[in-house]
Amino acid sequence: MTEVMYQLKVGNMANFTYVISDIQTHLAAIVDPSWDLQEIFQLLTEKKLKAKHIINTHSHFDHVFGNDEVAKMTGATVIQHSNSRLRKDISVAENDVISIGSINLRVLHTPGHSEDSICLIIDKEAVFTGDTLFVGAVGRIDLPGGNPKDMYLSLYRKVSALEDQLTVYPGHDYGSSPVSTIGKEKLSNLALQAKSENEFLAFMGVG
């Protein structure tokens, strides 16, 4: 309600970069800058936004490799979960709140795809799910840092417990639409239908 979100589809891995801006102060956070950085800079100029933070949903290269250049160009500080081993200005953990003007982004630690995966929640409105939850799918658990049991807990205890109305902004454009809602995903996402941890692990091919 006090923010405008821009979803930019970038690169050849169907990544999404997000720019979240506060209407009143024109401050912005850039989530997962990578690939087509020119698009980000153009948007910032066009909408007269001042980038305050760069936030990475996790430290895989396709989500972070624009960090340095965007930080250099804008002076924004880099925020990641404390488990990330990459260079960062601010470490965050579960329930920390990142403010950009009047916008509050709450951190939900959701390991499983990687140790430092986080989701960012705007109360009653939106959740940026990185590579934890996609539209119609979930993130891989076979990459370094992946952990199937953690993924189960993150998806079934944390993400599924979020309010149905939240708009889901995923880290990649892998689904039938670029956005969804928690409610829709709980109903139709096959990876969220397991009745037990074992069933989930079997579905993910590691049971």
Binding site: M1, Q24, S102
Partner: peptide, 27 residues
Amino acid sequence: DPRDLRTEEARTNWTILTRLNSVELFW
């Protein structure tokens, strides 16, 4: 504060305005 708008309809129309450039919003 826009987050305290009381009705769904008012919230919807506020959200539409947040996406426009032609109307300045101030609260």
